[in-house]
Structures are given as C-alpha cells and as structure tokens.
C-alpha cells in the first residue's frame, strides 16, 4: 500500500503549517468553468492571495444530486460555457504556473469514470492537482480508484456524514489521505444561518478514529460560523457563499474582488476568532 504521499503532498504540508501556527484553515470551493475557465483561473489566484488554504475545484456535472440550487446553477453555467473534466485539468496546469496553493478536484464519479481512472489519475497528477474528492463514491466502491490515485501521489478525500456509524467513520478514515471532509448536517450543499448542535459530538466521534485533519463543510458561509468551528475543526469549507458572489457579480473583475473580500473576512475569523453575534447579512 502506498501511504508515503500522505506526508508529502501540498495538502499535508499546509495542514501541518496551520497546526504549527494554531490556526484554522479555510477550504474554498468554486465550480470550475463558472462562468468560464479563464474566470476561474483569476478567482483561484484571488482566493489564494486573500488567504485561502486549500482550493476545491468543482468539476461540473449534469446531475449534481448532492448539491443545492446555488451549485446546481453554477454547474449549469459551467457546462453551458463548455467546461469538461479535461478542461478543468488544463486549468489546474495553468494555476500551477504561478501558484502553489493545495488543489483538490471535487467531482461526481461519472466524468472520471468516462475518462478512465488511469488516464484521469495520470493527467491530474501531471497537471499539479493534490487530491480528489468524489461526492458519490464511498469506500466500498473505491478499491481501484484508491489504488490508482495513490500510485500517482494523489490524496483521496472521502466524505463523512452525520448519519455515518462509528464503523463507517473508521472505514472512511482508513480510505482517506490529506484530510477528512465532514458534512456538518444531513442535506445538500448550501448556505445556512445556524450550525447543527450535534456537530461537536460528531467531530469527537471522527477524531476517535483518525489523526487526519478534519475540514467541516455544508452550510458554512459566515465568519461567525468559522469562529464557532475554531477549536473544533482543522478547516472550514466555504462553497455556496463564494459561488453566490460569482453569480451576483457583474464582471469577472468584480467577482474576483468580492471573493477576495469574503475570503479575507473568513480568514480573519479563522485566525482570531470572532463573536458569535454577527448578523447574517
């Protein structure tokens, strides 16, 4: 089994740095190709500059069953603009020409399967991706996938959920490298006002089975959420809130500026911890 990469990827390095500084990380999700791959390149660089620790690049898919309306519409826009998995891999290559931020590809399984696992893993590694998360792939169906990705030094990140039993959490932890992505609540992606009350207990259950860093996502949109997660999670994943900024902005320049402002506020909260009395505007 190949586990050496767990120590050497950009992802592991970034989480080690965060731990050393006692700081929580921010994982930023945006859908690649929304509204164009050129725009996504600009957004990634802006987010990295503003302090994002990891970028998740969403590979658009026609049937995103795990996503709420915000990311569904982003996927539709990206597909309309002609984005494909091959195009997203080329975007990774272009990002890598100037930027060393850890990059995770966030995809549904079918586009990867159609490219072929070997071809995908080789291309993703060559382009400079660090890890892959497949929304609709669970440990049980993933033996080939894990073997092939690990051979290319790619981290395999799996989702853990509030409904996961302790037995499943252990299985998920054993199949994951880089970090664990913990879904904060049952449901699809999308911004929410409040975080679920049973979250600390869920994090404790996951910590009990794995030393990997834990990133918490689904429903995280505000600096206030981030400060609540301080001391609980190693990182917060912010997705739909960023995708909304892109959808709202009149131009890619305006979107990049809005993303950077959002990211700075989130990262400040992650560094310092903010009051929970923040308003949800």
């Amino acid at each position: 089994m190949i586990t050496a990469n767990a120590k050497t990827t950009r992802i592991a390095k970034r989480f080690a740095e965060l731990r050393a500084r006692g700081e929580m990380g921010i994982v930023a999700y945006i859908t690649a190709g929304d509204p164009s791959l050129d725009a996504t390149l600009r957004y990634v660089l802006a987010l990295a500059e503003a302090g994002a620790d990891v970028i998740e690049l969403g590979v658009p898919f026609s049937d995103p069953v795990a996503d709420g309306p915000t990311i569904q519409r982003a996927s539709e826009r990206a597909l309309k603009s002609g984005a494909t998995l091959a195009g997203v891999l080329d975007l990774v290559r272009r990002i890598r020409q100037t930027c060393e931020i850890p990059l995770v590809l966030f995809s549904y399984y079918n586009p990867i399967l159609q490219m072929g696992l070997e071809k995908f893993a080789a291309a993703a590694a060559a382009a400079g991706a660090d890890g892959v998360l497949v929304t609709d792939l669970t440990p049980e169906e993933s033996a080939d996938y894990r073997r092939i990705l690990a051979a290319r030094g790619l981290d395999t990140i799996f989702l853990a959920a509030p409904t996961s039993t302790d037995e499943r959490l252990a299985k998920i932890a054993a199949c994951s490298s880089g970090f664990l992505y913990l879904i904060s609540r049952t449901g699809v992606t999308g911004a929410q006002e409040a975080l679920p009350e049973d979250l600390p207990a869920l994090v404790r259950r996951l910590r009990a089975v794995s030393p990997l860093p834990i990133a918490i996502g689904f429903g995280i949109s505000l600096p206030g959420h981030v400060s609540i997660l301080g001391g609980l999670a190693d990182a917060a994943v912010v997705g739909s809130a960023l995708v909304s900024e892109i959808a709202k902005a009149a131009t890619p320049e305006a979107a990049a500026a809005a993303l950077a402002a959002r990211m700075r506020a989130l990262k400040d909260a992650a560094r310092r911890g903010l009051s929970r009395r923040e308003n949800a505007s």
Binding site: T138, E140, E141, L159, A161, P162, T163, R168, T186
Partner: peptide, 10 residues
C-alpha cells in the same frame, strides 16, 4: 452497486 453521497449510506 451503491454510488451515493455518504449521508445516504447508513
């Protein structure tokens, strides 16, 4: 097989 988000596995 079973290709679903983790939330649905249990």
């Amino acid at each position: 097989g079973r290709y679903v988000p983790e939330t649905l596995m249990a």
